[in-house]
Computed example of a mutant assay.
Amino acid sequence: MAELPGLAQADRPLVVLADDDTAITSQLAPLLERSGFDVLTVHDGAAALTAATALPAPDLMVLDVLMPHLDGREVLRRIRQAGVWLPVLLLTQVGESSERAMALEEGADDYLNKPFDPYELTARLRALNRRARRGLPPLASARVLRAGPLRLDRAARRAWVAGREVVLTPKAAALLDYLVTHPDELLSRERLMEVVWGWDSASTTRAVDNRVAEIRRGLGDGPGMPQWIETVTGEGYRFVPRVEAER
């Protein structure tokens, strides 16, 4: 493993920022540093792979898809194959559903489409870091997740509560998957629209509310005293229970 001595302070998570676009890194790195992160910037896939397996180990990685030497997806695959489970936020190029699904299936913990809001990226890194520091296992790479009596088979898109199968439409199942893999994170309706429906959808954010209502009916949840999905007025939704990967 490579060694990168003295890069991070004890109370500041170290982020590897991997993007060959210097216009992005020159603006994003100072913002992340002002937000409480230490930042190591690299500009190609080979350097990103080296940084991901370095000592001291980084806490988080922002990984662009299109980079010289190794593309971001290949870097991500090699990181996961090596058993390195640092949280990775993937920067993708298009908003199609296949692109989003591929990003998550290949082991990304989250993703953003370019162009993106730097402050949203910062907020997502904070959420990933909170989960990692609480000792939670990597949820996005797990096939089966549990949250109390809820069991979610992500590959099959099937869910059960206390052994009873929850029958959901495909959109509601995809929405539940994203909520469960991002527990205790406030997710805006716009973000959920992007993830489940895509930028090119003619649907409105009301579609999110309808699918959340469908999930709540299936789980036996209520908006007044939610056991599963909390409504944050004017903001979005939060999945409440602790989530664990099934061993």
Rank of each mutant, 00 (worst) to 15 (best):
R126D: 12
I229F: 06
R124V: 00
P137M: 04
L86D: 03
T205Y: 03
P56R: 09
G236T: 07
R124M: 04
A52C: 10
L32S: 05
P56S: 12
G198Q: 10
P223K: 06
R77T: 14
T233M: 12
R130H: 13
L63M: 05
S35A: 15
S98V: 11
A127H: 04
T205H: 06
E165S: 13
D209G: 11
L4H: 11
D21H: 13
E105S: 13
P5W: 06
V232I: 14
A29W: 05
W85H: 13
P241L: 02
N129H: 09
V39N: 05
I24C: 09
M102A: 14
V212R: 03
G224R: 11
R124T: 01
V212M: 10
E194N: 12
E165L: 09
K114H: 13
G95S: 14
G218W: 01
A46G: 12
A82Q: 12
W228D: 04
R217L: 15
A140I: 02
A82K: 07
L91W: 02
L86S: 04
V243W: 03
V75G: 11
R12C: 05
V167Q: 15
V62D: 04
L125P: 00
Q227T: 11
L175E: 02
A173M: 12
E74K: 07
A174L: 07
V240C: 10
N210C: 06
W85K: 14
M102L: 13
D153A: 10
T231F: 08
L139D: 08
A29Q: 10
W197S: 06
E194M: 11
L168W: 01
A10K: 10
P58G: 05
T204G: 14
S141M: 07
A156S: 13
A10Y: 00
L76G: 09
R100N: 05
D109H: 06
H69W: 00
R216Y: 06
E246Y: 04
M193D: 08
F116L: 13
F116C: 14
D110E: 12
Y178I: 12
V84W: 02
I229L: 14
T92S: 14
Y178V: 14
E120C: 02
D21W: 05
P58Y: 01
Q9V: 07
H182V: 07
P30W: 04
V196A: 11
A159D: 06
R154C: 15
L186S: 15
H182Y: 09
E165A: 15
A213M: 08
F239V: 01
G163Y: 00
L187R: 06
F37P: 07
S26K: 10
D64Y: 02
G163I: 02
V88S: 12
P138W: 05
A57L: 09
